[in-house]
Design a protein around this nucleic acid. Structure first.
Length: 581
RNA sequence: GCACCUGUAGCUCAGCUGGAUAGAGCGCUGCCCUCCGAAGGCAGAGGCCCAAGGUUCGAAUCCUUGCAGGUGCGCCA
């Protein structure tokens, strides 16, 4: 249940009744009528802008509409008070029973509390990570992986049919470089001295791959020209790298539904088909691009290339899809890949890219817009850089100096749960500071700890209640005398719980999973505040050993909080803990 | 030169399809914390929401222009 949408229905029904009574003209658009929590809780529990939105079309003064609406809403048992304020806001105060109803819903629906039908079962494809298969995942990939995975879970929670997908860039020259690098390690495994020049990957992680290649083919490739081994070694190496990447993802708790290979596009005619589809729309032509202004490549000279008229779909300049030698640019298979996603019937597409791909957004959107005739929206989320800190000091990464920080390094040091939560404590558009020490601190300034601690505190109460012989199963708690919960701080916590379904929809609509992390921190804060008050006012403590009924009511509130924390952490991919260690 | 992202308290950042007196953590100030649920609690100070125009009953939020920082810009992917 979502109390905000329930009350909005009530408001709309009242407005319709006013139309029937001739107090409002027919044919009004209620689409902009909103029911929201007011910024200042002193104003009430909910506020509606109905009077202000409808004043002009209805030809009446906002305050007059608000007064009339106020009279009708006051007649509903759920509304304890309705008052007109400011330019025409209608503030509503709800009966305590409404908050109790929310708690019961949370205890009854548990993991499903807050689920929504926003997506209406529509298919959405979330493509994320998509790192080149040339080495292990690093910190930058980690943020994209966590973000994409949480977004996918979030969309699932709000009613989408979600596919998680990884695009393997195994078709470009970078996998040839990988193959040559592995070949060097292979020669090394045969006892030869090798040198890693510029343009090869010197990382140690290829040592076992070279060794494995030796075990696979013996000395068959030693002393042979590239033509003999390149294709074979390339396949072998990319396969090994993808195994490595899958292990990295698994360590972070990320599981993909599909891995889509760029290489598999070649030779199937799909690229040609996608380009033909664009050509049929008159969007493909042979032409010469203007040189880029400012930073001009040194060897720039005008060339005729095959171009995609992406400017027709919002891009700044048209984009080449063939190099001057006639081979495809990277963009061409990517067009084909998105063409494939469209043809697989997805209703919405989401790409999660690193910030360095920002320049790629417009052309990709242009391609999808053109190929789908604007039927399939593509949202591209860019994740900004992660800056690493060690004890407050910046931690420089350098491949050359060997201080290259991999995803595995991070997960091994702080754990997958902490990594995931911290990566979501900033919106994707903002750079993120990640301090190896601070994320493990046990204090209020560490949101991961604070949320987990709230959860653990509630579970501690549940354990102690059972020891005291008080039944605290959810079914029992759901039937508890919640009318005993009347204290302001208790109602405040219940109100925060009631915001969860609304928050989830907002996060889902905006594709912003970080909102969940921030909300969970707020929710945890409210619980801690109530808990702390128990120090001064023993009557507010959750466990009242001599009064089972009172305990059950209070614990029902606490349990509802952990229901939401568990669901929220679940979306973020973080395991809720029941005990702090 | 152009495009995209960012600009909110001393610092790091939230801010809901535009809503009322703009929030949190840290830091700062004051009080509380021998035990009874303190890996602390309560309260307070602190703002020209980068700037200037515009749209609107109403703008941190939308539009335009400018400023500052970051990222990117044909034969790399």
């Amino acid at each position: 249940m979502n109390l905000f949408t329930d009350i909005r229905v009530l408001v709309i029904d009242s407005l319709k009744a006013m139309q029937d009574a001739g107090e409002l003209p027919a044919g009004l658009d209620f689409g902009h009528v909103a029911v929201e929590p007011p910024r200042d809780p002193a104003h009430g529990d909910m506020a509606t802008n109905a009077a202000m939105v409808l004043a002009k079309p209805a030809g009446r003064k906002p305050r007059d509409i608000a007064e009339a609406l106020s009279t009708r809403l006051s007649g509903d048992a759920r509304v304890s008070e309705a008052s007109v304020a400011g330019p025409g806001f209608l503030n509503l105060r709800l009966a305590d029973a409404e908050w109790h109803r929310v708690l019961r819903a949370a205890l009854h629906q548990r993991a499903d509390f807050g689920r929504s039908d926003l997506g209406g079962g529509r298919g959405v494809n979330v493509e994320y990570v998509s790192a080149n298969p040339t080495g292990p995942l690093h910190v930058g990939h980690t943020r994209g992986a966590v973000f994409g995975d949480a977004l996918a879970s979030l969309l699932d929670f709000v009613g989408y049919d979600v596919t998680r997908e990884y695009y393997i860039n195994d078709g470009g020259v970078q996998v040839d470089v990988l193959a040559r690098s592995v070949y060097l390690r292979y020669l090394e495994a045969h006892g030869q001295a090798v040198a890693f020049e510029d343009g090869t990957y010197p990382g140690d992680y290829l040592v076992p791959v070279g060794q494995a290649l030796k075990e696979e083919v013996g000395d068959a490739y030693v002393g042979q020209p590239e033509a003999v081994w390149l294709a074979e070694v390339r396949d072998f190496a990319t396969d090994r790298m993808m195994r490595l990447i899958r292990e990295d993802l698994a360590a972070l708790g990320v599981t993909m539904d599909y891995f889509y290979s760029e290489k598999s596009l070649y030779g199937t005619g799909l690229i040609e088909e996608a380009i033909r589809a664009l050509d049929e729309k008159g969007l493909i032509y042979e032409g010469v691009l203007e040189p880029p202004k400012g930073k001009k490549p040194e060897d720039w000279e005008p060339r005729e290339q095959t171009l995609f008229r992406s400017t027709e779909h919002g891009d700044d300049v048209d984009r080449p899809i063939r190099k001057s030698d006639g081979s495809w640019t990277y963009f061409a298979p990517d067009i084909a890949y998105h063409y494939n996603k469209i043809s697989r019937g997805f209703d919405e597409l989401i790409d999660v890219f690193g910030a360095d791909h920002g320049g790629y957004v417009k052309r990709m959107k242009a391609a999808v817009s053109a190929l789908s005739d604007d039927r399939v929206p593509l949202d591209i989320k860019l994740t900004q850089l992660v800056k690493l800190y060690k004890d407050g000091k910046p931690f420089k990464m350098s491949k050359r100096a060997g201080t290259f920080v991999t995803m595995r390094d991070v997960v091994d040091q702080v754990g997958a749960d902490v990594t995931r939560f911290v990566m979501l404590t900033r919106k994707n558009d903002a750079p993120l500071d990640f301090d190896f020490d601070k994320v493990l601190e046990q204090s209020k300034e560490n949101p991961v700890f604070y949320v987990q601690y709230a959860n653990a505190r509630v579970h501690s109460v549940l354990r102690k209640a059972r020891e005291a012989g008080i039944e605290v199963d959810d079914a029992v708690l759901g039937a508890a005398e919640l009318s005993r919960l009347t204290h302001d701080m208790q109602i405040t916590v219940a109100k925060k719980v009631a915001e969860w379904p609304r928050l989830v929809e907002i996060a889902g609509r905006t594709h912003e999973p970080h909102r969940i992390a921030f909300y969970l921190y707020d929710l945890a804060s409210e619980l801690h505040a109530l808990w702390n008050r128990g120090n001064d006012e023993p009557a507010l403590r959750f466990l009242q050993e001599d009064d089972a009924a009172a305990s059950q009511a209070k614990i029902a509130l606490a349990r509802a909080v952990t229901v939401v924390i568990s669901a929220g952490l679940g979306i973020l991919g973080v395991t809720p803990v029941e005990e702090m260690r």
